[in-house]
Design a binder for these strands. Structure first.
Length: 578
RNA sequence: CGGGGAGUGGCUCAGCCUGGUAGAGCACUUGGUUCGGGACCAAGGGGUCGCAGGUUCAAAUCCUGUCUCCCCGACCA
């Protein structure tokens, strides 16, 4: 039966949103009775949410199956040993939920499943003839996020579709990756999301190439640089730009850096003010980080921002954090605000590539209250330091491909695909024999989609003052029928319409409650069911019902007997597979 | 981990400064009047004031500790 009675369903709607809901999707999911919060970053999914999530999962399943991926279901509870094999028992740090069993053995809750799938591949795959394999599951992941926030957008327990490809060589991986990329585009499109695929930073996953699928919304936590003129789009963790980056020159070229007193000056800004008057573009900003427990120095222009992800890429570290003040002084002899990398060889030095050739620069002297002027980057820094892309791009800078002004915006990551290569197959010894009898590590890819994030992103994209406006493909119900009034004739007519809709395969929510019309309208708008059929006295006198789409304004009178077919046609048109 | 803010009935909040034994709106129950965009009247039910100590004749209120939740920052020297 495709019909449900509103009076029986558990849909606890709220007039007022909880005070702690900040973003639209959070507020509306709670108000419309889809979710409740159990703890920080932990949510109950109530029947309406379950229906929508099931639809998202089904769309994912269909697109995965269409490219030959095979569905698994693996444990969420993992013995520590398997994570120690890949080395990620340590790498994942505090982000991993860990627990012990009664014998004191170490376990964790899965954050992702590269290790588990790779173990199966290692144990079971022997020959190149068995490849390629593409495996996936839709499973719960646990991540002890430092700061859960924004409702369902950053949580500690969530559902992920994670897929893994196993190929004999790089060419095979290229194809598997491309299959996934195309499947992802279909999934997000079918879910009603406008998205952009962007070049991404691989982070703790490792591997060569990766692409993120981003939904543009201010509720997102990532920053994307995209070119309005060409197809270039990248997470700012990897985005580049060209010009206008020529460093300002001081005009005074010195044979060697010269120390000068700057009492009390601790910031770029202070040094830019009188009496010093050295604009940020003339300064070098030196930042101290700890990469895998070892200090590194990053140097960017005074008016630029260091991008931590880029620094992480540059030094190849798996963990990166800013150094504590008490780590800085013993290393450089001064506190933050007076630091510089001129002649400093106590730790690796990375210099932003935009600084190549810059001269007449000012930087800290590694002595409190003193700076150096006349610094020549090539001469004074690059003999011991390495050039790297470290700075964050800014809006308006030139697209690295075509030069047009880059657009910068907030975005929410709903999917991420990686070319892992052999990182896991080597560490976990997953290999097959090739045709020539040689053993070769399996070449892997890994592909994730956040199921709840799709639901939340759809709401961020599709809502108005009154509530959610679901895309038909993932709405918990496709149509809702309202009776306006208590007359038995209305209920009779409504039930007939419900029956016909149901018979036509349309999922319908029948609001049979003894409520005033206003309450039903408000509730229907809040829930966001795409098709609203209202049966009231006025229309019924002519044998008609009112047809209105949640996304539109027009109300149309439709003969009772024609409602089901009209709905069927719309559902067919909007949920068809691409 | 640092900095803010908040925990009072299911929800939104007041009361706290200036201690005297808990309130409003919404929601819920019953009756009545209403009935096309979150009705009205009347009568009800429901709260160890996050938790634990302490001060006091007396603590939601003052003090200490602790837990939880939300926001900002995780750097820009």
């Amino acid at each position: 039966m495709n019909a449900a009675r509103r009076s029986q369903l558990f849909i606890p709607t709220l007039k007022e949103a909880p005070a702690d809901a900040q973003v639209a999707s959070h507020r509306l999911l709670v108000r419309a009775g889809f979710v409740r919060q159990l703890g920080a970053g932990i949510y109950d999914y109530l029947p309406l949410a379950k229906r929508t999530l099931a639809k998202v999962e089904q769309i994912i399943r269909e697109e995965m199956d269409a490219i030959g991926a095979q569905e698994f279901y693996l444990p969420a509870l993992h013995p520590a040993e398997i994570w120690k094999e890949s080395g990620r028992w340590e790498v994942m740090g505090d982000n991993m939920f860990r627990l012990k069993d009664r014998k004191g053995g170490d376990y964790c809750l899965g954050m992702t499943h590269e290790e588990i799938f790779t173990a199966i591949a290692r144990d079971e795959l022997r020959s190149y003839r068995q490849l390629p394999q593409v495996w996936y599951q839709i499973q719960t992941k646990f991540r002890d996020e430092p700061r859960p926030k924004s409702g369902l957008l950053r949580v500690r327990q969530f559902t992920m579709k994670d897929a893994y490809s196993f190929d004999v060589d790089a060419a095979g991986l290229d194809k598997s990756y491309e299959d996934q990329r195309v499947a992802y585009e279909k999934v997000f499109t079918r879910c009603g999301l406008r998205f952009v695929g962007v070049q991404a930073h691989s982070g703790a996953m490792g591997g060569s190439a990766s692409q993120e699928f981003m939904v543009r919304t201010d509720a997102g936590e990532d920053d994307v640089a995209a070119c309005p003129a060409c197809s270039y789009a990248a997470n700012t963790e990897t985005a580049r730009s060209k010009g206008p980056l020529a460093p300002v020159r001081s005009g005074e070229r010195l044979d060697a850096p010269r120390r000068f007193p700057t009492p009390g000056v601790r910031t770029i800004d202070a040094l830019a003010q009188p009496p010093h008057g050295r604009p940020g573009a003339m300064q070098l900003k030196s930042l101290i980080y700890v990469a895998d427990e070892k200090p590194v120095v990053a140097v960017v222009r005074g008016d630029d921002d260091l991008n931590e992800a880029k620094l992480q890429t540059a030094c190849g570290a798996t963990m990166l954090r800013p150094a504590h003040p008490e780590e800085i002084r013993p290393l450089l002899g001064a506190d933050a605000g007076s630091l510089g990398a001129v002649g400093f060889t106590g730790a690796p030095v990375f210099v932003d590539e935009s600084l190549r050739g810059a001269a007449g620069m000012v930087t800290g002297a590694n002595q409190d209250d003193f700076h150096l002027e006349g610094v020549d980057v090539d001469r004074d820094l690059l003999r011991h330091g390495k050039l790297a892309d470290l700075r964050s791009v800014r809006a308006g800078e030139g697209c690295p491909r075509c030069g047009a002004a880059l657009d910068l915006f907030k975005a929410l990551e709903v999917g991420h695909i990686f070319k892992l290569g052999t990182k896991y197959s080597v560490s976990m010894k997953a290999s097959v024999l090739k045709a020539d009898g040689a053993e070769t590590p399996i070449v892997m890819g890994s592909y994730g989609i956040g199921v709840e994030r799709i639901m939340a992103a759809a709401i961020e994209l599709h809502h108005d003052q009154d509530g959610i406006v679901w895309p038909l493909s993932i709405a918990p119900f496709q149509a809702t029928v309202l009776t306006l009034g208590a007359e038995p004739a209305l209920a009779q007519a409504a039930e007939q319409v419900v029956k016909e809709l149901s018979a036509a395969g349309v999922e319908v929510l029948y609001d049979d409650r003894d409520e005033r019309a206003g309450v039903k309208f408000k509730d229907a708008d809040l829930l966001g069911i795409p098709i609203r059929i209202a049966v009231g006295k006025r229309g019924l006198a002519e044998g008609k019902a009112e047809w209105k789409l949640r996304r539109g304004k027009e109300v149309e009178l439709v003969p009772l007997g024609a409602v089901a077919q009209k709905a069927r046609a719309l559902v067919d048109a909007e949920t068809r597979r691409s």
